[in-house]
Amino acid sequence: MKFLNPLRQAVLLKRYKRFLADVQLVNGEVITIHCPNTGAMTGCAESGMKIWMSDSSNPKRKYRYTWELAQTNNGDMICVNTHRANQLAGEALDSNIVPALSDLANLVAERKYGYDNRRIDWCAEDAVGQTVFIEVKSVTLAEGAQGFFPDTVSKRAVDHLRSLQDMKSDGHRAVVLYVVMHEGIKNVQAAHHLDAKYAAMAAQAEAFGVEFYALSCDISEHGITPTGLLPMNK
Score class of each variant (00 low, 15 high):
1 M>Q: 11
2 K>C: 03
2 K>N: 09
3 F>W: 15
6 P>S: 03
9 Q>M: 13
11 V>N: 08
11 V>E: 15
14 K>N: 13
15 R>C: 07
24 Q>S: 10
26 V>F: 03
29 E>N: 13
31 I>C: 06
32 T>S: 13
32 T>N: 11
35 C>Q: 07
37 N>P: 06
39 G>W: 09
39 G>L: 08
40 A>S: 11
42 T>M: 12
43 G>L: 04
46 E>D: 13
50 K>R: 11
56 S>F: 01
57 S>E: 14
58 N>W: 08
58 N>H: 09
58 N>D: 15
59 P>A: 14
59 P>Q: 10
59 P>H: 07
62 K>R: 14
69 L>N: 09
74 N>A: 09
74 N>D: 15
76 D>A: 11
78 I>E: 10
79 C>W: 01
80 V>P: 08
82 T>N: 10
85 A>Y: 05
86 N>T: 06
89 A>H: 04
97 I>A: 02
99 P>C: 04
100 A>E: 15
102 S>G: 09
103 D>M: 01
103 D>E: 03
105 A>H: 11
108 V>D: 14
109 A>Y: 02
112 K>L: 00
112 K>T: 10
114 G>C: 02
115 Y>K: 10
119 R>N: 12
121 D>T: 05
124 A>V: 00
127 A>D: 01
127 A>W: 10
132 V>D: 07
135 E>Q: 09
135 E>N: 08
136 V>L: 04
137 K>M: 06
140 T>C: 15
140 T>Q: 11
142 A>D: 00
142 A>F: 09
145 A>L: 08
147 G>M: 05
149 F>G: 05
162 R>Q: 11
162 R>T: 01
162 R>E: 12
164 L>P: 03
165 Q>N: 09
166 D>L: 13
168 K>M: 10
169 S>D: 15
173 R>Q: 11
182 H>D: 02
194 L>Y: 07
195 D>P: 05
203 A>F: 11
203 A>Y: 10
209 G>E: 12
212 F>A: 14
214 A>Q: 01
214 A>G: 09
216 S>Y: 12
219 I>D: 02
223 G>E: 10
224 I>W: 00
226 P>D: 13
233 N>K: 15
234 K>S: 14
